[in-house]
């Protein structure tokens, strides 16, 4: 199988690659947003800690 045939998917390229593309986007977004939220929470905790320290 050459690469042109592979991307052509026997004429079902739109459906096959569309499915894999949407799945990739949705799942990647899930991971990225989760990591972003974790970072945001940690940043918030550090900011509060630093504020408390400078006040003390």
């Amino acid at each position: 199988m050459n690469s042109a045939e592979f991307f052509h998917m026997g004429g079902y390229a739109l459906y096959v690659w569309g499915s894999y593309g949407i799945t990739f986007v949705v799942l990647t977004l899930n991971v990225v947003l989760a990591l972003g939220y974790e970072r945001e929470v940690l940043r918030g905790l550090l900011r509060t800690a630093q504020r408390n320290r400078s006040r003390a």
């Binding site: 974790e38 940690l42 918030g44 905790l45 550090l46 800690a49 630093q50 320290r53």
Partner: peptide, 26 residues
Amino acid sequence: LIRTRAEVLERERNSAWVQELVQDMT
């Protein structure tokens, strides 16, 4: 796990162990 861990920290922010954790990080 990623989301639950973050949420645990957020909800437990005033507890002793989270305070300790933050102390180690600062």
